[in-house]
Nucleic acid binder design. Structure first.
Lengths: 237, 237
DNA sequence: TAGTGGTCTAGACCACGCC
DNA sequence: GCGTGGTCTAGACCACTAG
């Protein structure tokens, strides 16, 4: 039997969904603390706790004397983006599945240590090649245990985004990560994929994402051709 | 005239210094919330606010039913380390100043945009080459405005660490960063420094660090030979 | 001046860890 | 059972923003 969820969590999730559904857009102000107190019959302490959590997750910011405002771009906290992926105007940003999500085994291509608990679980993997225009810039491989995301194999990604799917369909946020980064010579296979020479420099990023659900850890291996589009990321407390 | 600092901030800074001075070591439990209430004549809400901030800064973690424990390794939040720098046993970790801290001009080597406010301020720069044993693995260049750190040029680094100096001497923490990462061919100068061939892959990381002091932004350019020691980092909410 | 967020008090009850 | 942290109430006063 699960005990009832805390009030602040209900409010937090309610507001999060309002933001995700576009009812509040970036730059909009969400209801004031006093307004939330009235709407949910809670005290300001509880309302502020809910807002504190949303701030930590990067959804809003507080402005003294004005209110709580939805943040422009979700600050990605370790989610690496190829710079220009969203900004590249005129050129389309494309993604091609080299391997759609499938039940498989844990690979020894994963650089960072896989926990014993994860190893003993079945594994879901998928693999995508990302383009700016027609130029392939990133090969992305992901693995995670098939224990916590119901119907994952049966459903499409929300807006083609894995992390958006986690957030919107499962209310799971990325809360941290460990990375290792290498500059390598491109292998033959990768050189072919990116249309570069073997021995050209290739960026190799290994990531282990922690999420707000203790049972979900995501392991990623990224290979990037940074000659035209450097990899960028930002994160803030 | 500056108004008095909030009580939670006093408690937060007091505890932070106790931890930094080794009065509480990793795995130790700091005083309980009720104990802090008595010691500082505050309520639990205020004590918890101070602890919340220390959690966000990565100094402690709460364990339900037990207490608040000092965290093993300060989770670095964007501060990139060469893996093995501290773990490399038997081999010494060395740092050589190629350029000690000096008053100079803003360089166009800085990749990420320097704010107008910073550009109009004088600039301090320093440059270090980091070794594992006798192997150079990272060239590190740093710039920041000379407006906020009194006596910086006149004093030594705390334990040879810039970030430890910021934290302990100035009570400034890193709270966020923006990075761009590239995999490049080594230039002649860099190949010479690292003892590798030109055209070997070299990792180039450009970072802009935000700190708990709004006036201090740190700009860094890092060049890493990752063939033996990959670059790693971790961060958590 | 009204409304917002920032800080703080003085309680309460519950859930978890440990003896 | 006792002390710890987790959640919550019902207030209070202050500082900032904007009309």
């Amino acid at each position: 039997m699960k005990r009832t969820e805390p009030k602040y969590l209900s409010v937090q999730n309610y507001l999060k969904q309002q933001i995700q559904q576009g009812i509040y857009n970036p730059e909009d102000f969400i209801p004031s603390e006093n307004e939330l107190c009235r709407q949910f019959s809670i005290t300001r302490t509880t309302a502020r706790k809910a807002l504190d959590e949303l701030i930590k997750e990067g959804f809003i910011e507080r402005i003294h004397g004005k209110g709580s405002r939805v943040r422009e771009r979700r600050h990605t906290l370790g989610l690496l983006n190829v710079k220009g992926f969203s900004e590249a105007v005129g050129e389309g940003v494309n993604t091609k599945f080299l391997q759609p999500p499938v039940r498989t085994f844990w690979s020894d291509e994963i650089i960072l240590p896989v926990s014993e608990e994860d190893k003993n679980a079945p594994c879901i993997q998928f693999e995508r090649l990302r383009f700016v225009g027609k130029t392939p810039v990133m090969l992305e491989k992901n693995w995670f245990p098939d224990t916590i995301l119901p119907e994952f194999l049966q459903s499409e990604f929300v807006d083609g985004s894995f992390f958006k799917t986690l957030s919107q369909r499962y209310l799971i946020e990325i809360i941290g990560s460990t990375q290792e980064i290498r500059s390598e010579f491109a292998s033959e296979k990768h050189a072919r994929l990116f249309g570069i020479k073997t021995d050209d420099p290739l960026l190799h990023i290994s990531i282990k994402f922690s999420t707000s659900n203790r049972k979900l850890t995501i392991y990623s291996e990224l290979y990037c051709d940074t000659s035209a589009y450097p990899v960028g990321n930002s994160y803030y407390l």
